[in-house]
Computed example of a mutant assay.
Amino acid sequence: MRSRLGVRWTIGDVSPAGFEALQISIASAVRLFGREAAYAVVVNGMSPSEAAARTGDVPDGVDWLAAPKVPPDVLAPYLGAGMAEGTAWKFAPLSVFPDLHELALDNDVILWEAPEAVRRWLEDGDPHARVVAADVKPAHGRFADLCGPEPRNSGIRGTPPGFDLGEALARVLAMKPEALDSELDEQGLQVAALSLDRAPLVVTTEEVSICSPFHPHQPQPGRCGAHFVGLNARDLPWCWYDRPATEVRLEHWRHLLPEMRRRAGLSDGRGVGGTAAGR
């Protein structure tokens, strides 16, 4: 891929399976995009060293960064009292690699092949192109009317070099000065900001599935990857066909885990370089 790329993740005090997914996501991204790309994990609610220890062995060259203690100024007036833990993490900081194509991945997104939208974003030379993922159902919160009719997911977010995400967020909030009270609001705000002036390139759910055992999510990975939604939660406080949802979610992940490790080059189930992964 011709354009220089920076890949970032965000992590906080998520479930052990969420850290397991992050290890695989990092290894798979480095395998896909190569050592010439830059990689960083932004850590909330714990030290970067603790997050790195929970994640386990990853390729060399990944930076572990402490998230800012306060949200960006553009968002501060709009953070509602009902915000769930983890909301607005993806905006702190707004950019890690401002001079590169920046690909922001949720820790539970695993890519082993570049989706068409990502390939075009990196190779076509369009200085204004942005990337977002498709979803299986609309979930845009208070900003739904600014996001268009198609469901979008912010688990994959691509911005070009020099893109001013703060300015884009400010434009959306000027049009709709609403408090952010949920992760759906956060997602809708991101989708609206990436959609200003032109439609973003879209990673399809056939390429990267919204992967979980719960309908209408997709039980199998896509051609290029999978977004394991719900994996970060320590407890899903509901039942699925009379079984605890947390148990069903983890069973599904464990079933696909050998394939995910193989896709990332971790086929022996051990850490990068053959050392046991920390837990």
Rank of each mutant, 00 (worst) to 15 (best):
A67P: 07
D235C: 11
R198A: 12
G6D: 07
L5E: 00
R262S: 12
C224N: 12
L196D: 00
P200N: 04
G18F: 02
E178D: 06
V132S: 06
A144N: 10
Q187V: 04
D126Q: 07
R243W: 01
L111E: 05
G269S: 01
V208H: 10
D108A: 09
G230K: 08
S212C: 09
G45S: 14
A168H: 03
G56N: 03
P237S: 12
Q190K: 05
R157D: 06
A170S: 14
L165Y: 00
S25K: 08
H215W: 12
L103E: 04
H128Q: 15
Q218N: 09
L250S: 08
R4F: 03
R279S: 13
A170H: 04
A76V: 11
R198Y: 01
V109L: 02
L165A: 08
P48D: 02
A104L: 13
E50R: 14
P127Y: 01
T204P: 01
P244F: 04
H101D: 01
V248H: 06
V118W: 04
G271A: 08
P258C: 11
A193Q: 06
M83L: 15
V202E: 03
G86I: 11
P98Y: 05
P16G: 09
Q187R: 15
P138F: 02
L266E: 08
V202I: 14
P77T: 12
R4I: 01
L79Y: 08
R8F: 00
V58K: 00
G230Y: 04
R31H: 12
G82K: 11
G274R: 14
